[in-house]
């Protein structure tokens, strides 16, 4: 019974992890950079949903739907203002620049949220309250809706990436920006779109995590670390890898916490299993499960 409920929990949380990791992975694939502000963008999504649903008292489904375009525009704005010009003029030391600038952006957003929203925990209402009972298994409504919405969004994303013209363009730029430009794909536009979608995915994950866990200015860091572990585990930039990696991390976290006898410690170290997983991957399969082996000159 404990096993079954832990497994169900892992599948639910894993789907939400997949959502945020896919955003990171898509950004890495197309822009070839790690978004170190991913956790803070997730937090922005959490607060956006909270403000729309609680402060402005909009219906919950409309709040969630409305946050999508806002997050997308936020992502495009960030790409335009911070990432585009250095890429375009082939800035020296571009690789270090993007790490510094995305990290600084995260610090900025986190410390902006602190005075604006206060250090308190906020909790937004879930789309569906109550719980669902399957045999002896009980799943809380906030988790179930979170997982279902995340599942839907991932489905739409995969359809978009593999079945539409724009998605094909994104994948082309991910494979080879030079070749994509030659066949007439607007690389700069694809980069902005990819960043916008990546931020949207992080933000939606934040909005769905909000009712389950709590929204606070510092929530981003632990989620960002999880997303990093997932993309390294799955292979940087691999879509399939991010999804598989997300479920693996969720299962390890879920069952890892049973192993430690002291409950307060088990709770504290839940986030530490990710690092263990990261170390193992880096030791034995640095390219990740589905990543391509690095080719050196």
């Amino acid at each position: 019974m404990l096993f079954l409920s832990q497994l169900a929990n892992a599948l639910v949380i894993g789907t939400l992890y997949a959502l945020m990791a896919l955003g990171l992975s898509l950004i890495f694939g197309v822009l070839k950079l790690v978004n170190f502000s991913h956790g803070e963008c997730l937090m922005v999504g959490g607060y956006l949903y909270y403000v729309l649903a609680t402060t402005l008292k909009l219906p919950l489904s409309i709040s969630l739907a409305l946050s999508l375009p806002v997050l997308f525009l936020f992502g495009v704005f960030l790409e335009r203002s911070l990432l585009r010009a250095p890429y375009q003029r082939r800035m020296a030391r571009y690789d270090e620049y993007v790490i510094l600038v995305t990290f600084a952006l995260g610090i900025f957003l986190q410390n902006l949220a602190l005075p604006v929203f206060g250090p308190y925990n906020r909790q937004a209402a879930p789309l569906f309250k109550g719980s669902v009972r399957i045999g002896e298994l009980v799943i809380a409504g906030d988790r179930l809706t979170g997982a279902l919405v995340a599942f839907l969004v991932i489905g739409i994303l995969l359809f978009f990436l593999y079945r539409t013209y724009l998605g094909k363009g994104l994948r082309a730029v991910a494979q080879s920006p030079g070749a994509a430009a030659i066949v007439g794909i607007k690389v700069l536009r694809m980069r902005a779109v990819a960043f916008g979608i990546g931020i949207t995915l992080a933000g939606v994950a934040g909005a769905l995590f909000g009712p389950i866990f709590l929204v606070n200015p510092e929530m981003g860091t632990s989620f960002a670390v999880k997303a990093f572990v997932i993309v390294v585990l799955g292979g940087m930039g691999s879509i399939k890898g991010s999804i598989v990696g997300a479920y693996i991390l969720a299962i390890v976290e879920s069952f890892g916490s049973i192993l430690l006898p002291d409950p307060s410690r088990a709770l504290a170290y839940k986030d530490a299993y990710g690092l263990l997983l990261l170390v193992l991957v880096l030791l034995f399969r640095p390219q990740g499960l589905f990543g391509e082996k690095e080719r050196r000159a």
Binding site: V34, F36, I99, V225, M236, S264, D271, L278, L282
Partner: peptide, 23 residues
């Protein structure tokens, strides 16, 4: 490895260290 692996791992490490010291 080349690329952002050091940045990723050190960020994860410092977060876990904070948890460890607190716990």
């Amino acid at each position: 490895m080349r690329g952002p692996y050091l940045a990723l791992t050190t960020l994860a490490f410092s977060e876990i260290l904070r948890i460890f010291i607190t716990a």
